[in-house]
Design a protein around this nucleic acid. Sequence first.
DNA 1: ACCTCTGTATATGCTGAGTATATACAGTAT
DNA 2: ATACTGTATATACTCAGCATATACAGAGGT
Lengths: 125, 125
Amino acid sequence: MDILIDNKSGAPIYDQIYTQIKQQIISGALAENQMLPSIRGLAKDLRISFITTKRAYEELEKEGFLYTIPAKGCYVAPRNVELLREEHLKKIEWHLDEALRLAAESGLSGEDVLEMVRFALEEQA
Amino acid sequence: MDILIDNKSGAPIYDQIYTQIKQQIISGALAENQMLPSIRGLAKDLRISFITTKRAYEELEKEGFLYTIPAKGCYVAPRNVELLREEHLKKIEWHLDEALRLAAESGLSGEDVLEMVRFALEEQA
DNA sequence: ACCTCTGTATATGCTGAGTATATACAGTAT
DNA sequence: ATACTGTATATACTCAGCATATACAGAGGT
């Protein structure tokens, strides 16, 4: 497990850990159901509090990248389609929110936006 | 000039002022070169510090929505409002298209997306 | 049983960004 | 002169975010 903490990076430690592990899971460098380093072991390795590694793991678990068995360890979650769907949904929601925000700034109503969506749908078809 | 401050909204006061004036400029409710209420007058009106109204005006000026003549007043910047609206519209369309594209990839129907928009609209309100 | 490993839960200290403010200043107009 | 404009600087308060120590509870090998 190679995690590098860059103190100059400005990014929070827990976030650096979160990002690097997430990448390794997505890239397949970490196999499904493989055991991850313990939050305490990794913390000792990086010379930080284990609460910080725990936070990174919590974040990853919340997003479904790993699962935890108390008193045993943390494991890479089997990557399923649902997970990717969730990510997609978040992106879609973000785009819609952004569109609505801009619409509000331009004085457009929600109904106007709905109309634009219907129009775009017809275009597609 | 009708500005409403909602203390329960959670949004900062300066931001509420900023957003409402910006909206009125973009929508055309305020004409080009029209004089805006003085930061002090508006502040007195809203019963807040004039520093807060100043901050809203500063933000608007930084984005080019108004210009200031010291010791005289603040004025709506001459600006092709139509052009600005067009830019906004393009952005909105792009976001919607992007959302629809991702939705299609996830196997969501157009009606699903419409439902998401309606939901987001309720959330906003 | 015991010790040591695992993850969990709660409470604490610190820091920085964000928000709103008063007060003193300087230019314009009547 | 005075009554408006906007400007500049310094201050107080709050709150979210980050990292932490300490105390707890279950699993497993010696």
